[in-house]
Structure formats: structure tokens, C-alpha cells
Design a protein around this nucleic acid. Structure first.
Length: 290
DNA sequence: GACCAGGTATTGC
DNA sequence: GCAATACATGGT
């Protein structure tokens, strides 16, 4: 580090960018491969590149406890990337609590170990709303493909040939037919409805964020094409509602197999979302023993 | 060619 | 209310 390097906790800011050290429960390869985010690609070992909040960004984790974010100022890190990567959250504490709640449960224990490096991202609200509409009855490669097409067609171009996620206004202006022509299928009308509602104020994303989780879900479900699962995903990954508990086909399987007496997600409060993500990721990658 | 994919809206009973 | 069924598309 140079003399001008400024240290704040275990985070160091230089002209080159940000270095965070002393990390625990943080693994880029888990974070970006656990199905919460569709715009990042692994460009090499422990190095991921993508776009979020209208910025092209690269994250590099040269060792388990160290994260490098090149080209980022202290202000940008504090405002965007620290919350985005959930670095302002004590995951050790969350994991301790969760372990206590599920003491000795074999599946939860295994899932927590397998998914230890997962962090729940705090993504852009509109991007998560739109992306999880696209995700319904769809597979991950095609979800990514459709989102890429939406960005390239209606997103703001960025340096490096990438594109920002399109604004609700730009998608509303594009119209149903143009969205359909990007091979979005039956979801075109849903994307258009969501974009229109946000653009004209019938859906106020700031109000969703300010509301409690249950009311927030109701507000999102007014959009045609948003049901309980899509709403829960958006709330969890985009609105900071850590109590949201998305149940998809994988979760249904996991809960039926391993929690035959029922699973009281509501009783977990703000731990529910993380519990869901551990179980989902484990089930998704261990379908045989799950 | 069926069948499936991080579901939801619509229909039929 | 609740169980089918259609929905666009692309990959096995």
C-alpha cells in the first residue's frame, strides 16, 4: 500500500480501488452461482465480472479472506458495493443463530456448510423485479440470455461494451411487441405491465422498500405476472427483505423430503431468506441426496 | 417429439 | 377454494 492509502477497519482504499481483508463466509463463486443474480460471469478463477447499478464492475478474490474491487472509490464502495455484497452484515452471527434454531438437523447443517460462502446480494430493486418475472417457468441459461437481450436493446451503453439494465421507462416506451420480439415469450406482457406501472407511478418501488415484507409482497403482486414466488425473490434479493422466503420447485422438494413435519419460515423472521438460500443451493446441487 | 425449466393466470369442477 | 391447464421458447 502507498502512503496515501487510507485504512478503515479492514478495508483499504487506494487510487487503484478497494481491498477488503479479513473476510469470512464470503465466496464469490458461491455468491454469483447460487441463482440470485443473472448478470455476472466468471472470467477466471475467483474473478467475476458484470454490471450492477449501471456500472460495469469486477470482483476478484485472490484468497478466501481478501476481496479486490479495482477502480472503485471509497464513496462508491460505501454507497453501492458494500451493501450490494452484503459486507455490512455479520454472517457469522446469522449463521450462529441459524445453527441454534436447527441444532443437529442433518440437512440444514450440511446445507449451511456447503453454502457457507453465500451472501445475499442487495441488488437494484427494479432489476430484481424484472429479472424474476423473466425467471418464471424458465431455465437459468435462457433467463440470462433474455436479460442480456433486454439490456442490449434498451439499456444504456457503458464503457467496455456492456449495458446497464434498462429502466422501467425505456421498457414501457418500447412496448409489448418489441419486448415480445426479444424472445421473452408469454412474459412480454408481464414485463411490460411491471415497467408501465413503475414508470407511471402505480407501483412505487420506494414505497415497497419502506413497507413491511408482507405489505410489500402485496404491492408487487398487483403486477400481472408477479405471484408469491417472484415477489419473494425480488424482496429478498433486491429490497433487503431478509425475511422473504421464496418457495420454488427445488425448495418444495427440499422441504417435503427433509422437513416432513413442516417448516415454519415465518418463525425464523429475518433469518428466513438466508435459510432458504442455503437449502435451495444445497438441493439444487445435490438433487440425489438433497 | 415429448418433456422440462427458480410460476402465474385462467379455467373448470 | 383447489386441481388442472395454457403459456413462448429453447435445450435435452
Amino acid at each position: 500500500m502507498t502512503d496515501s492509502a487510507k485504512k478503515a477497519g479492514n478495508t483499504v482504499f487506494t487510487a487503484d480501488g478497494v481491498t477488503v481483508t479479513g473476510l469470512e463466509c464470503f465466496e464469490l463463486d458461491r455468491i454469483f452461482d447460487c441463482g440470485q443474480c443473472f448478470r455476472f460471469e466468471r472470467i477466471r478463477e475467483h474473478c467475476w465480472e458484470g454490471v450492477a447499478f449501471g456500472r460495469a464492475i469486477r470482483f476478484h478474490q485472490p484468497s478466501p479472506d481478501t476481496l479486490l474491487i479495482p477502480g472503485v472509490s471509497e464513496e462508491e464502495y460505501r454507497k453501492i458495493w458494500r451493501p450490494y455484497l452484503s459486507l455490512d452484515v455479520d454472517y457469522n452471527a446469522k449463521r450462529r443463530e441459524l445453527s441454534a434454531r436447527f441444532a443437529g438437523h442433518p440437512t440444514m447443517t450440511a446445507a449451511m456448510e456447503f453454502g457457507k460462502g453465500i451472501r445475499i446480494l442487495r441488488q437494484d430493486p427494479w432489476e430484481t423485479v424484472c429479472s424474476f418475472i423473466v425467471s418464471q417457468n424458465n431455465n437459468i441459461p435462457r433467463i440470462k440470455k433474455i436479460i442480456r437481450a433486454l439490456c442490449e436493446a434498451y439499456g444504456e451503453p457503458l464503457d467496455g461494451g456492456q449495458y446497464a439494465f434498462p429502466t422501467p421507462q425505456s421498457l414501457a416506451a418500447a412496448g409489448r411487441e418489441a419486448i415480445f420480439n426479444l424472445r421473452t415469450g408469454f412474459r412480454a406482457k408481464y414485463i411490460y405491465d411491471a415497467a408501465s406501472r413503475v414508470a407511471d407511478g402505480r407501483l412505487n418501488l420506494a414505497a415497497v422498500e419502506a413497507a413491511d415484507a408482507s405489505r410489500a409482497a402485496e404491492m408487487l403482486c398487483e403486477v400481472s405476472g408477479i405471484g408469491p414466488k417472484v415477489a419473494a425473490c425480488a424482496l429478498l434479493f433486491g429490497f433487503g427483505k431478509t425475511e422473504a422466503f421464496p418457495v420454488d420447485v427445488w425448495m418444495k422438494r427440499s422441504l417435503e423430503r427433509h422437513f416432513p413435519d413442516g417448516f415454519d419460515a415465518a418463525a425464523l423472521g429475518p433469518l428466513a431468506g438466508l435459510a432458504q438460500q442455503y437449502l435451495f443451493y444445497y438441493e439444487r446441487y445435490h438433487p440425489e441426496n438433497g
